[in-house]
Design a binder for these strands. Structure first.
Lengths: 223, 223
DNA sequence: GATAAATTTAACTGTCTGGTCCATTTACAC
DNA sequence: GTGTAAATGGACCAGACAGTTAAATTTATC
């Protein structure tokens, strides 16, 4: 109130510099990593840009410089998360494995990936709360899960041909079941634990559940 | 800046009254209903008190009057949602029904309840994003899902005794499978639809999935 | 019909938080 | 080395939003 004269942006004349090296890619990567943690933890509206900036050594300004705005950053995080799971998925080579064994591997992998990447699961939850609005905005993500769907379709067809799987099952149902059983343990871990003590994060509970899930899917498609 | 003298709250001298009837419970119920919609739609941080107040005829002040603060309102919504599903669950009387039939009914009910109450599902998602922090704060909710768990336990034991279910299955696995398969279709509806066109909201897709889910659970426990 | 308690309302505020402005430094071509 | 564009830093701002203040009006009670 008192010395409010000369109001035209006094500024502190940033005298303190102490040198820094330019590293655009590195900065972007750090921002993305910090943002993934923050968005997965607090959701889109709950996440704080200041918090992300604080987590990285970099200044808040850079976030907007590279990602335009909060939504842009969020979409980038989402795209990276989906690209990552797909990259690993590609390394699964099930074509050479007999159907039953291949299905066990696929279910086990899906279960493990979810359990090992709760951030991914939470991001998908957040995105679903937003009715997948941002997924729709991103052309990059369009055909990602289709590859998982294709794996199931192929594997199931081989199993039917071999006579080890029963006929007439919709591969979509197989895929949904695999996803649901891998997803739910992680997405609802907190309420499951709260409501009846079972902590799915514990190695023992997790291993038991894993075996049970594989069994469930196998029994579903078997004759 | 100009006429800032006489600053002591001029007020408009609320001259307009037009009578109102007292209805505390009614007002609280309306607020809860509006809040449920808002929280389910936007999450805890995304929800806006002003928006809730606008949806109800009543003024914002009443929200704080009855529910103290945003978190208090949110917890009240959560408690109501859990109480509601429990109330309906109670009406299921499975003790008199043979195990296989009873299991079909239970799975079908769970599937339908989730599909018919997406708000409930979304609230649970939101709460899990918050690590069930508020569930822990509410003593009321503690033993709610335990009743569902008990139903499964009882039903499974009868099935084993009758020789229609195989031995050695953990009832917790049965319960988790039932919940997961009912929950996932709704919680991930948006991303499922985005990623491969299947809209689980459509009656046809829903009915097909329902039958498949029942089949999955039955095959899991059968000999 | 007077007094207290309950209920409703509008205006107001302090803080938090995306997002911006302008200055400065680094990288690099020539 | 000098000019130029990209990269970085941090103060600053404007709007939004949870929560408050204080008064006004209605119901309940005796």
């Amino acid at each position: 109130m008192l010395n409010k004269i000369e109001s035209k942006r006094p500024r502190k004349a940033a005298a303190r510099s102490l040198s820094w090296t330019q590293d655009p890619e590195g900065v972007q990567r750090s921002i993305l990593a910090a943002a993934r943690i923050e968005f997965a933890e607090k959701g889109l509206s709950g996440a704080r840009i200041d918090e992300i900036a604080a987590r990285v050594a970099t200044a808040k300004r850079m976030i907007f410089y590279y990602f335009k705005d909060k939504q842009g950053l969020y979409i980038a995080v989402l795209e990276e998360a989906y690209a990552r799971i797909r990259a690993i998925e590609r390394t699964l080579d099930l074509a050479a494995v007999p159907p039953v064994e291949a299905l066990k591997i696929l279910v086990g992998f899906t279960f493990d990936y979810h359990a090992d990447h709760p951030d991914f699961v939470r991001l998908v939850m957040v995105e679903n709360i937003h009715h997948a609005r941002h997924l729709k905005l991103s052309a990059k993500i369009a055909d990602l899960n289709l590859s998982a769907m294709d794996m199931v379709r192929d594997l199931y067809a081989r199993g039917v041909a071999d006579g080890v799987f029963r006929d007439g099952v919709d591969p979509v149902d197989i895929h949904l079941t695999i996803s649901a059983l891998g997803f739910y343990n992680v997405s609802n871990r907190a309420s499951i634990q709260q409501v009846f003590g079972h902590d799915m994060g514990q190695a023992q509970a997790r291993a038991g559940r894993r075996a049970s899930v594989i069994d469930t899917v196998l029994r579903f498609v078997s004759r």
